[in-house]
């Protein structure tokens, strides 16, 4: 199988003025590749939530987007504090966001649920004190075998 087309981004921690930039760039790139709008929307929403989580909770990280013939894979990796209880973190409304980021509109505890909802597959690997890696797949229409 041929190598996927790959985009790589570094995401800066605690920088709220650039937060979301990688996702906005991915949206642009996918548009240029004439992907269908619903797929673009799903990928960019899921990636945005993961990107913001790395900014807010993990002091930044990296985002990789891989384009396979049948799917788009998003890998968000950080070396932040990790998530002690992933099942709890996945619940709607659960958030450990601090007041300063809540004042900006973050901290509803809806980011991870959105990521789950907008992707076809999502996997969280996390170790407390080591970091978190979230892998998400969005299947291209008509190719979700």
């Amino acid at each position: 199988m041929s190598e996927p087309v790959k985009f790589h981004f570094d995401v800066e921690g605690d920088n709220f003025s650039s937060a979301g930039e990688a996702s906005v760039n991915v949206k642009k790139l996918l548009r240029q590749l004439s992907m269908d709008p619903e797929t673009i929307r799903r990928v960019s929403i899921a990636m945005y939530e993961g990107e913001i989580n790395m900014v807010i909770h993990a002091n930044g990280g990296t985002a990789d987007v891989l384009l396979y013939p049948d799917r788009i894979r998003i890998i968000l990796a950080d070396t932040g504090p990790g998530i002690a209880d992933v099942a709890l973190a996945m619940q709607e409304g659960f958030s450990t966001a601090k007041d300063n980021v809540r004042a900006l509109g973050f901290g509803a505890g809806m980011g991870l649920p959105n990521m789950k909802r907008y992707t076809d597959r999502m996997e969280i690997e996390s170790e407390v004190g080591k970091g978190t890696t979230v892998t998400m797949d969005v299947f291209l229409p008509g190719k979700n075998a």
Binding site: P37, I45, Y48, E49, L104, G105, F106, A108, M110
Partner: peptide, 12 residues
């Protein structure tokens, strides 16, 4: 006003 609510629920 909560951004990830909007992100998850607002329609195109």
């Amino acid at each position: 006003d909560l951004l990830s609510w909007v992100m998850g629920r607002a329609q195109s």
